[in-house]
């Protein structure tokens, strides 16, 4: 089943994403990621997005992550993506967002 979850409560300054993210359009992700985008726009305190437990994400979702990086870049908020090195879409595509913004770090375990 396609199930996903965004947890902004459990870990300070971190959004923990879990599950499979295959929404139909970038616009659907806008609504889903709105709290994350708000956070990086409103506060310059460093923020993390934990993708460790995200099994799959489609290209619309990767686009939404890139949009979050661009929002952080505009606001000057340091952003970290946490993920796993043995998950191809994380080690390939997420890691490749690094050149978009010097304040982005991608930590793969």
């Amino acid at each position: 089943m396609m199930d996903y979850q965004i947890d902004l409560e459990s870990v300070p300054s971190t959004a923990v994403l879990r599950g499979v993210f295959r929404l139909a359009t970038p616009e659907q992700y806008d609504a889903l990621f709105a709290p994350l985008a708000d956070r990086v726009k409103k506060s310059q305190a460093p923020f993390s997005v934990d993708l460790t437990d995200v099994v799959l994400m489609n290209s619309s979702g990767l686009r939404a992550l890139a949009d979050l990086v661009l929002a952080a870049r505009r606001a000057g908020t340091a952003l970290t993506f946490l993920g796993k090195a043995n998950v191809p879409w994380q080690s390939k595509t997420v890691a490749s967002l690094k050149p978009l913004y010097s304040g982005l770090s991608v930590k793969l375990s």
Binding site: A24, V55, S59, P88, W89
Partner: peptide, 16 residues
Amino acid sequence: DVARSVITTAANELLE
């Protein structure tokens, strides 16, 4: 596991 992840990623993009 790795092949499965790449195949479903690719197939899903083509199907979407």
